[in-house]
Amino acid sequence: MWDYTDKVREYFLNPKNVGALEGANAIGEVGSLACGDALKLFLKIENDRIVDASFQTFGCASAIASSSILTELIKGKTLDEALAVSNKDIAAALGGLPKEKMHCSVMGQEALEAAIRNYRGEPAMPHSHEGRVVCRCFGITDQQIIKAVKENNLTSVEEITNFTKAGGGCADCLEDIGEILRATLAGETGAPQKPLIPDMRPKTVPPQNAPLSNVQRMQRVMSVLDEIIRPRLNQDGGDIELIDIDGKKVLVALRGMCTSCPSSRLTIEGFVQQTLRDQVDPDLTVQEVTS
C-alpha cells in the first residue's frame, strides 16, 4: 500500500475543480490510456491571468490529487507566474508524494506548460518536438529526462524512472538513460547525439530516381506500408491503415496502441513519412487522419 499523505487522500477523495471548464480558452493534454495516466487541464485566461482552472484525469490516486491541487495552485496567477510552478511545488503542496509517484507531479507541470503553449499558439508538446525519444514505452524524450534531472537534482536512473516513467516499461532504454544522466550531471551541453528514432529505417533499398506514375506510386506506397511499416508497428501493438493517396499526399490512420501513444506524431513524421520518402518518393508527405 502506498504511503499517501492526508493531503493526497483529501484531494483524491474530494477533488476540487473536476470536469471540463466552460469558457476555457487554453487546454493542455498529456499522457495516454496506454501509459496508465493522462491529464487534460482546462484554463480560463483573461489579460494574461488564469482566472479559472479545472481538470480531467485518468490515473491513480496521486495523479488525481496532483491534478486537483495544481488547479488550486495556479488560479489567480499570471501566465509567467504559473510557468514558474514546478513539479516540486505540486508535490510539496500535497505534503510530498511517494518517490514512485513523483511522475504524477511531473505530469501536472507538463500539462500546465502545454496549456499555456496552447493559449500562446505554440506547439502543444514541446518536449517531443525538441528532443529525441528515449523511452518508447512511454514516449519520453531526452529533454524531458534532462529537465527532470536538473529540476529535482536526480542522481540515479531509478529516480529518473520514478519522476518521468522513462525506463519503467520494457527497460530497454535504461542504459541510454544512464548515459543521459551521466552527461547531464557532468554538465555537458546537449544530450548525446543519436538519430531520431534509431534503427527503424531500412537502409538497403535506394530511392527510385525515375518519376513514378500515380498508379506506380500508389502500389509502392501500399507495398512499403505492408512490408516494412506495418510489421514494425505491430511489434509495439500498433497498426496503420491507408485511408487515401492524393497525389503526393498519403493519408493514414493509426490503429491499436498507436492511437493513444504520445509518440504517435513522431511515428508519423519520423518513421512512416521518412520510410515512404526513402522507399518511394522524397516529395511524399504523410498526414494522419483521426477518425
Partner: peptide, 14 residues
C-alpha cells in the same frame, strides 16, 4: 474501461 485500478482500490478501501 477508462478508469485506473489503484483509484478503484482506494475508493473501495473507504
Amino acid at each position: 474501461k477508462y478508469v485506473e485500478g489503484e483509484a478503484i482500490l482506494l475508493l473501495l478501501d473507504q
